[in-house]
Structures are given as structure tokens and as C-alpha cells.
Design a protein around this nucleic acid. Structure first.
Length: 430
RNA sequence: GCCGCCGUAGCUUAGUCGGUAGAGCGCCGGACUGUUAAUCCGGCGGUCCCCCGUUCGAGCCGGGGCGGCGGCGCCA
């Protein structure tokens, strides 16, 4: 039953006198004297409708209708400087599709309460703006990936083992066996490059870690790429071009939505290739010169990372981490065996890690050795090790946390606002 | 797993020294000739998170529990 309606944002002052039909929800209602003002909201925006007593039936309904009721409004377009946006609907017909007695979300809602009623919070134009930006970012990613020759693949979510020893997996029953929810598609993407060379996927990733930070969710959307015949420096170029395009394109298409949350666009505009490349060694030096007590070989914690990101006005890479703090599948630097050919992309303004990437170990023996060093059993990685026995090639890849990129772009205070129904250790409902 | 904080009306909260629990928003009723999260008047609304204890008397003091939040670690 598509209604032959116009969207709120389509109504312009030059349409003065035109008869229109709109469908949406009651966003605001004000009764003054013998008039009722209803601000109507739909997915495109808002417009004011005015009900006067001379259209008695509509006026009576308008007086009674509650906030966030679903309604269909008919009337005539009027340009009026007193109306928000300079245009309004002189309404003469109101159909209340479903009347709402009271909407639980009012102006004094805490973050916690908004998450409790997330299903209703999705009415909010602010939430809508974030969801639109997220959608546009993926639209941009697809545009870039298509023109650069990457194939989208669809990896499994039900898996048998860990990608990284440390991360905790959600366990589930798989008939009479155990299985897990995937925390990364990487291993499967690595397999796919032997047929398609350049592949990517967008999948949910799951981490059963009780992380209580503004950067973590137990379920998040993971954009992963894997490319054959690419070394670390090749994949960094892919990363910066892809991220730059996602940001620039979204800035072009969704400026209004971003502006609701972010006032300063400098760091977004600065997101043009090449991104600065900072070695781990330089990062340690910088931190030490700022009085941070950190030694070569230690991993950077959240505090260190934050201090470092405040030095930059655009995203930047940190590369050349010590091997022992990185995952087993990352290739050892042939010029310095203490280091891994790994790089993270950090967002500025304190946001930190958005991408983790690396060149992969493509040598069978070295990979077996690394698996043993991590205290894992090579038997569990048999098919993965096979990839190094049957036409192994140098290859690299990375994973991007979509919510993290959105959170930075919109300057959100938590990644949970960048997802439809956030899952955290304490929250799996609604 | 570790450190810190908080649970009072649908929501946001005040509550002094331990002495009959208050406000704003929302909702309901009324007033108002154009409002911009309108305004004004009136009304409805309470398992003070739970249990035990101290006390003549506990929202407040003590003990235990439950739930949540902020951060660390881990990562994207």
C-alpha cells in the first residue's frame, strides 16, 4: 500500500498553493488558541502542519493526537516566514493511523534509558542521521572497491577456531559438536585470494570479551580486505585510499547529518592520501619525550594511543610493531626479525585504532613455528597451513571496525551509537 | 579479570542532623489569535533496587546480595 505522498523535505515555499499528502509521525505538537501546530516527521526531515478550527474534524483529531503517533496529513502548501523553514502545510485532513497515548522518550532521557528503549529511540532524527552516515559510508566503500577491482565474498560466521589466541570466542552448540561465532573473516578471505586475488567482505564479528570501553562492542561490523601479491606497503595504500574515499564521499553526501554531531570538519577534510606513516620506534620516542614511561617492546595502551593521536590532525599509520605483541599470522620483517610487518590505522582526536592490518606469513615452516610459539596446536590450522603448501603467494590484508570509523567521523562519544541495536557484555535486549 | 561510581514517580532528579517523600518533564483537564522542546492554572502518579540488622522511628546508619554505569586489560 504505497501511499502517494511527498516527503517532508520535498515541500518548498515555491510550491505555495499546491495540494499535498504527507505520511509520518507527530514530532512536536503545540496548541495555541484555536490552532494546533503539528510538526510532522518522516525519514527525510520535518515540516509544520497547521490545523485551524474551520476544518473542524481534522482540528479535533489534531488536538487529541499524541507525540509519535503515525499520521497521514493532507493540505495546502503555504509559504510563511513564521513557520520553521519558511514553509508549512495548511492542513484540512488528518488520518490518525495509530494514536500514541504517551511516548516514553522525553527530553530528559539518560543514555542508559535510551539504550533500554533503543527500539523507540530509532524514531529520533539524530539516530537516523547516524544510520544514514553509516549506510553512506558503506555505499562509498562499495563504490571504491568496485572501481579498484575487489570481489565481494561472503564468508562463514559459524566457525571452528580462533583467529587469534587471545581473543575470546562465543561458543555454541553445533549439533553434537562445538562451534563458535566468527571474530574475523580473515582466514577465509586468505583462502579466497587464491581464486579471486582481491577480495573483501562485510560481516558481523563477535568478541566474547567483557570490554567496558567506548571503543568496544561484542558484536560489530567488520570490513575486511585481503589481496594477493601485496606487501605491507601495498596494503597501506589500499587502506588510505579506501578510508579517504569513504570519508570524503560521505562528507559530500551527508554533510548535514554529520554536522548535527561534529562542528569541526578539519580532520575529515585532511583525510587525503598519503596518511602519515609513523614507525613503532618513532612512536615510542615521541611518547618517551612526552614523559610517558614506556619501553621498546611494550604494547601501547589506550592512554598511550590517545596521547599519540592528539599529535595528529588526520588519520595516521603506526607500523613495525614488535612481533611478540602481534598475531601469529603476521609476517616477520626480514630486515628486523624482532618486528612484524604490521600496521594499525589510528584516527585522530583521541579515537585511536580503526584498522588493524598486516602482511601475512606465507612461509609454511615459519607459520608453524609461530603457531607453536603462541602455544596453539598446528593441527587446528591444517587447512590454513595448506594455503602455504599449494601455491603460496605474498599477501596482505586488514580489518576495519565500521562503527569505529563512524564514531570518529561523527565525533560520537561511544561506538554503540553507531549501530542499530548495540550488543555489549550487559546488553543483548532489545 | 581489575579499579572506581551509582540505584528515589514513566523519564531526569532533590532529599539537611535518622522524625509523615518534593520538583521539573511527560500524561489528563482547563485557559490562550502564529507556536518554534510555547506559556499559564489545576490534577493523576512512589515496592525510595532486594534481604537482614541497629533504632521508639531508616530513602538516610551497618552487613550481604542483585542490577547498571565509567575506565583499564583485550582488540576493530
Amino acid at each position: 500500500m504505497m501511499i502517494d505522498k511527498v516527503y517532508c523535505s520535498q515541500v518548498k515555499p515555491k510550491m505555495e498553493g499546491e495540494r499535498v499528502k504527507l505520511a509520518g509521525w507527530v514530532y512536536r505538537k503545540r496548541e495555541v488558541g484555536k490552532k494546533v501546530f503539528i510538526v510532522l516527521r518522516d525519514s527525510s526531515g520535518v515540516i509544520q502542519a497547521i490545523f485551524r478550527k474551520d476544518s473542524e474534524e481534522a482540528y479535533k483529531l489534531a488536538k487529541k493526537v499524541g507525540i509519535e503517533s503515525s499520521v497521514i496529513v493532507e493540505g495546502t502548501v503555504r509559504a510563511d516566514p513564521r513557520a520553521p523553514g519558511g514553509v508549512e502545510i495548511q492542513a484540512d485532513k488528518l488520518e490518525v493511523v495509530q494514536d500514541v497515548e504517551f511516548f516514553p522518550i522525553t527530553k530528559d532521557a539518560s543514555d542508559e534509558f535510551l539504550l533500554d528503549v533503543r527500539h523507540l529511540h530509532l524514531h529520533s532524527p539524530k539516530v537516523g542521521a547516524i544510520l544514514k552516515v553509516k549506510a553512506t559510508m558503506m555505499q562509498a566503500a562499495r563504490e571504491w572497491l568496485l572501481q579498484d577491482g575487489w570481489y565481494e565474498v561472503f564468508p562463514p560466521i559459524l566457525v571452528t577456531g580462533a583467529v587469534e589466541g587471545g581473543s575470546t570466542l562465543f561458543k555454541l552448540k553445533y549439533f553434537d559438536r562445538e562451534a563458535y561465532l566468527s571474530q574475523s573473516a580473515q582466514l577465509y578471505l586468505e583462502a579466497a585470494i587464491f581464486g579471486l586475488e582481491k577480495v573483501w567482505s562485510l560481516t558481523p564479528s563477535f568478541r566474547a570479551e567483557k570490554s567496558r570501553t567506548r571503543r568496544h562492542l561484542t558484536e560489530y561490523w567488520h570490513l575486511e580486505l585481503e589481496g594477493a601479491w601485496m606487501d605491507l606497503w601495498d596494503i597501506l595504500k589500499v587502506e588510505e585510499e579506501l578510508v579517504s574515499y569513504m570519508i570524503q564521499r560521505t562528507l559530500e553526501l551527508r554533510r548535514k547529518e554529520i554536522e548535527i554531531f561534529r562542528k569541526d570538519f578539519e580532520t575529515l577534510k585532511n583525510t587525503e592520501p598519503p596518511f602519515p606513516r609513523v614507525s613503532y620506534d618513532e612512536a615510542i620516542d615521541t611518547l618517551q619525550s612526552k614523559g610517558v614511561s614506556i619501553e621498546w617492546g611494550e604494547d601501547m595502551g589506550a592512554d598511550e594511543e590517545r596521547i599519540l593521536t592528539q599529535e595528529f590532525d588526520r588519520p595516521f599509520f603506526v607500523y613495525g610493531y614488535p612481533k611478540h605483541i602481534k598475531a601469529f599470522y603476521m609476517k616477520e620483517d626480514p630486515e628486523d626479525p624482532r618486528k612484524a610487518l604490521a600496521a594499525d590505522l589510528l584516527a585522530p582526536e583521541g579515537y585511536g585504532e580503526v584498522i588493524g592490518g598486516s602482511q601475512r606469513e606465507d612461509d609454511y615452516d615459519k607459520l608453524v613455528q609461530r603457531i607453536l610459539e603462541e602455544g596453539m596446536d598446528p593441527k587446528n590450522y591444517e587447512w590454513y597451513l595448506d594455503l602455504r603448501k599449494y601455491g603460496s603467494v605474498p599477501h596482505s590484508g586488514f580489518g576495519l571496525g565500521l562503527e569505529r570509523l563512524v564514531a570518529w567521523a561523527m565525533k560520537l562519544d561511544h561506538v554503540r551509537w553507531a549501530t542499530l541495536f548495540p550488543r555489549t557484555p550487559s546488553r543483548i535486549y532489545p
